[in-house]
Structure formats: C-alpha cells, structure tokens
C-alpha cells in the first residue's frame, strides 16, 4: 500500500526530500558562527572522504608531479641514461621534500619548545574547502585526539584559525580569513586593540581589522597579536602584519587590512591547542 503510494507519487516525494534535507541541515547547523559539535553518524560518515583526500594529497604533495617522467623511443644507451636521470631526479625531488619537511618540523618543534605551557596536538592538512565563499582547511588528526569545536589552531608562523567541526580522525579548521572568523587582537607596538575579521574575498587570504580606535596610531608593518580576550586564543600569538590603513567608515573607528603571518597556500602541518597548563 505504502510502496504503491510512493511509486505513484515518487516525483513529489523526491522533490519534497530535496527541499527538506537542506532545511534540516540548516536548522541543525551553527549558522554563520564557527564551532559546532556534530553527531556520531556525521563523525563517521566523514571518514571515507577524509581518507581519500589524505591519500590524494600524500600522493601529489611531494613526488606526484615528477614521479612518472621517462622516455620510450630512444636508443638503448640513451634510454638507460634517461632512466638513470629520472631516478636521480625523482630521488632528488624526494630528498628536497624530506628536507623541506624536516625544516617545517624543526620550526614546529621550535614552536613547541617556545610554548611548553600549551597542550599541542599535531595535525596534517589534507585538503581545502571546495567553494570560493569560505576558507576551511581539512586536517587529519590521530583517532585518539580529543578535539572540541573552537579550539585554537596555530603553526610555527602564527595563528591559523579555530576548529569548526570534529569528525572521526579529521577536523574542519576555519582559518583567519574565513568570513566567519573573528579574533581579538592588539598591536605588539602600542597595544592598540581591534578585531580581525576574515574577508573571504579580495586577494585570497587577507583580513580586516575592525574596531580600531581613531585615537590609536596604527601604521603599516605593525604586528598584531592575539589579545587573549574572548577566552579562545591565548595571548601573544602572532596573527599578522598591517598591510594598509584605511580611513574610518564608522566614525569612531579606523580600519586596517591585515596580511596573515601564515602562508595558508603552503600550510602542511599545524598544531591544535587543546589546553594550557
């Protein structure tokens, strides 16, 4: 009876489901605010996607572009030499990759040594979001890591962003330039306070410092660090450098453009600050 009814009205049923599913997703989401706990089904449903992205990024990240070079119709000697060149080139590429990774890991270890008070959980960047409107990194974490939404994420260069959603072995990180991100900052030079807001557009990864008092002097090159207000980010973590100071649009405040200290396009390893001692 029910099956016959569904068969008869299948177009309407599909259309209703198409409208209902996104509305349910929207109703159960955190809206335009980053940081949200997800249910158990969603935590596990992310695993196949995270696993595939992790393998693809591992494959293409270091040797993928150079691994398959070779020659086919040259003479034997030429072919042998070419194969040797290919092997050495591939080895060279791999070694450069290892050296670069070594350098990055040294920086991360240095960061960890400079901040022994933080409980740092390492994570590897495996992918980015697939829309132009948001700035989200997908990171791989160890399965036993206990992450929570809104935990701060940092790298050796400075603040990366904050955890948005946590899945089984993976997490979404909303970076500084995402339009949903807001971080309280102060100028390292004169302690002028402001709020760094992600733009999500204009020159890739830049952000805007709002609510800077007109009376405070802010100049290009000022380093902005976290103020510790808001209770999410610890104090004195570098967020970025003032790239441009703009005339006030809100009367009492001036605005500035900030270049994040982290190069998000090359980011491979990050730390999640899971707490402080």
């Amino acid at each position: 009876m029910l099956l016959a009814w569904l068969e008869h009205h299948r177009r309407k049923v599909v259309a209703m489901a198409l409208l209902l599913v996104p509305l349910v997703m929207f109703a159960t989401s955190a809206g335009a605010t980053p940081g949200k706990d997800v249910g158990a089904p969603a935590r596990y449903a992310a695993v196949p996607m995270g696993w595939t992205q992790s393998k693809v990024s591992a494959l293409l990240g270091v040797t993928g572009l150079f691994g398959g070079a070779g020659s086919s119709e040259l003479r034997d000697e030429n072919a042998r030499l070419q194969a040797e060149v290919d092997r050495l080139r591939e080895e060279n590429t791999r070694l450069i990759g290892v050296l670069q990774e070594n350098g990055r890991l040294r920086e991360l270890v240095g960061f960890r040594e400079r901040h022994p008070e933080y409980n740092l959980i390492p994570a590897r960047v495996i992918a980015r979001d697939t829309s132009p409107f948001f700035r989200v990194l997908k990171v791989e974490i160890s399965a036993d890591a206990k992450l929570k939404p809104r935990m701060p994420v940092v790298s050796a260069q400075g603040v990366v962003g904050q955890v948005h959603q946590v899945f089984e072995g993976y997490a979404d990180v909303v970076i500084v330039s995402d339009p949903r991100s807001r971080i309280d900052v102060v100028s390292q030079r004169n302690r002028a306070q402001g709020v760094v807001e992600g733009l999500g557009h204009e020159r890739d990864y830049q952000g805007r410092i709002s609510y800077l008092s007109e009376r405070d002097e802010v100049v290009v090159g000022d380093v902005m660090v976290t103020s510790g207000m808001g209770g999410i980010f610890p104090r004195e973590l570098v967020v970025g450098t003032v790239a441009e100071v703009q005339e006030s649009q809100r009367g009492l405040f001036q605005e500035a453009v900030i270049s994040p200290s982290v190069d998000f396009s090359r980011l491979e390893e990050v730390f999640v600050i899971a707490g402080a001692e």
Partner: peptide
C-alpha cells in the same frame, strides 16, 4: 562536508 560552510 567538503564545502565546510554554513550548514544546509
């Protein structure tokens, strides 16, 4: 999941 935006 891949977009990571405002849900829905």
């Amino acid at each position: 999941w891949l977009v990571g935006g405002v849900g829905g």
